[in-house]
Design a protein around this nucleic acid. Structure first.
Lengths: 188, 188
DNA sequence: ATCGTAATATGATTTCAATCATATGTTGCC
DNA sequence: GGCAACATATGATTGAAATCATATTACGAT
């Protein structure tokens, strides 16, 4: 249920939290309580810039955690706003820090973090590719096409139209297979 | 000299490596030896796709580490190619795994990883902003303008021309200050 | 001093992805 | 079965950033 490393945390440190749209889980400047795991719903992390404009730092989806760095800091550096009602679990800061004394937790955390960093780096490289065709190809190679083309396009930060066109071009050029409507994959 | 957490690793586990342009530090499929810290030079991590095309996963700069996830896997999943001659340090896989038993290392690693994940998330949000003007503004708020405008533009994945134009527009609109040629910053 | 190189800056043109429009196919629901 | 909602698909138009071109300025090397 919870992502990997937090299995090593005693359940007494887990606080279930439910929220409605618009609720703020924490505010910028609040003292940190811990990190959060999104079970259902969606949460935006936002920072308010000097002009008073809101700027989204991160969109946390169900199944992901956020504010991990808050475990190592005194105050939250952004607001967490619920944009789709759901359930969260807060994991106590002190418990996480204590858990680092458990090598099993430490390694699980390290593995998970290293993989996440690698995946994010790859995403940065991919979204940095200008040509839609190249970006889609890179996305396919990276295995990002899971679920619908619409989701794939969103992951690539491309319009779904551009994505369909790029896929068609790749199929025409024989670089991608399209065995049936909506199904695209690389040659084996 | 080395990034933070690796201070806790005994120096016997550090192997200096020097390389010339075009040298391959490791190949996809090689058994993993450990992670690398770039002291000087630049290294590209590349994957070869089924067509034989090379696809860059990551560009490692001086002062950064790469292949951290290899500590937790049996083989490297990409090639590491030196694109600018320099010096690397390899940190032995077994030493890193062993170091997780040291809570000081584990927490330092956790802190560093959490911050890096947060920073990368923010970068993904920023490069996902379409309008050059908004992207540049977000970059300024995030404190990404260190060094030249050319570097700033590269960080934002914008052409430097588009970046100059966006900066000029922001100055005209009174959102950014331009006290002298080449100097741009937000109002205090 | 002056030469070369790189950063800053801006104008002109081109390219290509977003957007708008529209149609078909697919799925679940009553 | 028929309808609603959504995914798939593609054509037409638009807009904005890349690219190309060209100055000017800054800075270090000789």
């Amino acid at each position: 249920m919870l992502p990997n490393p937090y299995d090593h945390i005693p359940s007494s440190a887990l606080r279930p939290i439910s929220g409605a749209v618009g609720d703020t889980v924490f505010h910028q400047g609040d003292p940190t309580h811990g990190l959060y795991v999104v079970q259902t719903g969606r949460v935006h992390l936002e920072r308010v810039d000097p002009d008073g404009e809101r700027f989204i730092i991160h969109r946390a989806q169900a199944g992901t955690s956020f504010a991990e760095a808050s475990v190592f800091s005194e105050v939250y550096h952004c607001d967490a706003v619920i944009v789709e009602a759901g359930a969260l679990i807060r994991i106590d800061k002190a418990s996480v820090l204590a858990a680092f004394a458990d090598p099993a937790f430490a390694r699980a955390y390290g593995r998970q973090a290293a993989q996440q960093i690698q995946a994010q780096r790859q995403m940065l490289e991919i979204v940095g590719i200008r040509r839609a065709e190249d970006r889609v190809m890179a996305g396919l190679i990276a295995g990002l096409l899971e679920g619908s083309i619409v989701e794939f396009a969103a992951r690539l930060q491309l319009s779904h139209e551009a994505t369909y066109r790029a896929l068609r071009k790749l199929v025409q050029d024989g670089r991608v297979m399209n065995p049936s409507r909506g199904i695209y994959h690389l040659h084996p």
